[in-house]
Write a protein that binds this DNA or RNA. Structure first.
Length: 486
RNA sequence: GGCGGUAUCGUCUAGGGGACUAGGACGCGGCCCUCUCAAGGCUGUAACACGGGUUCGAAUCCCGUUACCGCUACCA
């Protein structure tokens, strides 16, 4: 039994995109499921577009998702001497030849051919050059590229997601493998590295399907064993187009900053293009994903990234995760919002955990939690005007209600839910008010918001002193409003 | 243009010749619960791209059309 070796091979030209993250995830899941290795290779041969910043962002994104790689990261640019050596071998074995046609003249021929009949394919004229002539021009330092000599026939493979795919070789021109500056072309570098890394399964986006026959020919020319291939569908935006900046947040870091949990991202991405089959529970932990993952469940069709569903799923994970794990996470966001320091929150111990437990059920992101925590952490509340307009429609009336509640609460024997309930029920009955009519004005007085956890939770969370003083403050505010309005 | 890939509710998907009156989830609507908002429970809405075959029978197999995507570079 040999264990599979897979790799994720991003080019460091931007942040880790959700599409790339999904590709990395499937490679990782497959490797974990089958006890194999998941490797990381940075394809940094395009020096003009590659940046260290982007390399770091990719590492960070993968780490955030928990997609840890085995073995050291491979930087493709460090391997160009091997890429060249492989090209040299193909030159010697006759699988490749030198081409002295200039890019400029090729371009002209291509334009001409396209105007006339449509398709242009390199006509192999340099393959006719005799050895002495080639040697002379090489010695003279004539700029040239190296082209692969595409054989006759067809190239086919059994794709893990698409089944058999076959390309007639006649439709593939003698493609360049080494540029005139002696740097390798993408397909050459990929194959050389995948062979060197002993990759057994190449799993990547289906935009690489057309590259695959070329790469297979290269493996054969190099005398290397073929890996298996699996081509994953793309991820699209809501308009059905390939995901891009226009669609808003497309970098995994963007979602991290919006309060999406890494386990949600993994769960959501896993279900974009893969399904365990049959009826199944969609909210899954990473361990459950690893356990049920298999290539049979890979879909062929492009999927649309549905933010609504992502957010719903995050709400699910928020509620299911251990409170102890959520506490530091939410703490960071709360601290970033300037509501309290992480130390202060930690010092509040169980009170803080109880607050989180009450808020997370009505939140979809960690940021929602921080927003809702505000009234419980700041000194004085600010009244949301929309909430006030509704619950304090008649300021004089609202003031009377708040005052009555305050008076009763001041006299409450103990400050616990049961006792508070009894106290407030009496207030309602005395004034002939349903609890809704009573709690509405109180809620705005206590939290400044139209919505909050249940009244008794709010009161006990706030504590007697804060609650009473907020009610008093609201009475003053309402008195002001009653005057101003009258 | 050539070559390749894909096509089930708005979205993610189940299903792979008869069990399909096409199932689940998100979203949206309704009801229940209820002090608000959520969560939860129940429920409604909504799909086999089109046309030909094959077959007793097609969402499922075959062919074509259409649409979308990718490749067709000395980009990756």
């Amino acid at each position: 039994m040999t264990f599979p070796r897979l790799r994720f091979a991003p080019s460091p030209t931007g942040y880790l995109h959700v599409g790339g993250a999904r590709t990395a995830l499937f490679n990782w899941l497959y490797a974990r499921k089958h006890g194999g290795q998941f490797l990381l290779r940075v394809e940094d041969t395009d020096k003009a577009r590659s940046t260290d910043e982007s390399t770091r962002a990719i590492f960070e994104g993968l780490r955030w998702l928990g997609l840890h790689w085995d073995e050291d990261v491979v930087f493709q640019a460090a391997n160009v001497s091997r890429h060249r050596a492989d090209v040299e071998r193909m030159l010697e074995s006759g699988h490749a030849y030198r081409c002295f046609c200039s890019a400029f003249e090729l371009d002209a021929r291509r334009k001409q051919a396209e105007a006339a009949e449509g398709a242009f394919k390199y006509d192999r004229r340099c393959d006719q050059l005799d050895a002495a002539e080639v040697a002379r021009r090489v010695a003279a330092g004539d700029p040239h590229v190296v082209r692969f000599r595409v054989p006759d026939g067809a190239t086919a493979w059994t794709d893990l997601v698409h089944g058999t795919i076959s390309f007639p070789n006649k439709d593939i021109e003698d493609f360049v493998v080494l540029r005139s500056d002696a740097t390798p072309i993408y397909n050459m570098a990929v194959v050389s590295d995948d062979v060197a890394m002993r990759i057994t399964l190449v799993m990547r986006g289906d935009d690489h399907i057309s590259n695959t026959p070329k790469q297979i020919m290269l493996y054969r020319a190099l005398g290397a064993d073929l890996p298996e291939f699996a081509h994953l569908p793309m991820i699209h935006g809501a308009d059905g187009k390939k995901l891009s900046k226009r669609h808003g947040a497309t970098a995994v870091a963007d979602w991290q900053h919006e309060g999406i949990l890494p386990q949600t991202m993994v769960n959501f991405l896993a279900l974009l293009g893969w399904s365990p089959g049959g009826e199944f529970e969609e909210v899954m932990s990473i361990d459950e994903l690893v356990a049920s993952f298999d290539a049979d469940g890979l879909r062929k069709t492009a999927a649309v990234f549905d933010v609504k569903k992502l957010e719903w799923m995050n709400g699910q994970h928020l509620v299911r995760m251990p409170l102890a794990d959520l506490a530091p996470l939410a703490g960071r966001t709360i601290a970033a919002a300037g509501l309290a320091t992480e130390q202060e929150l930690a010092a509040r111990g169980d009170w803080y955990l109880r607050l989180l437990d009450l808020l997370r059920v009505r939140a979809r992101t960690v940021d929602d939690i921080a927003r809702q925590a505000r009234p419980f952490l700041v000194q004085a509340v600010t009244y949301d005007e929309a909430a006030a307009a509704k619950a304090w429609k008649d300021p004089a009336d609202a003031r009377a209600i708040v005052a009555a509640a305050r008076e009763a609460l001041v006299a409450a024997p103990t400050w616990d839910a049961a006792s508070l309930e009894e106290t407030l029920k009496a207030v309602g009955e005395a004034r002939g008010l349903a609890t809704g009519k009573l709690f509405g004005p109180m809620r705005v007085a206590l939290t400044g918001e139209a919505n909050s956890p249940g009244m008794f939770d709010v009161l006990t969370l706030l504590g007697r002193d804060v609650a009473i003083s907020r009610l008093t403050a609201a009475e003053n505010e309402l008195a002001r409003r009653a005057e101003g309005g009258a």
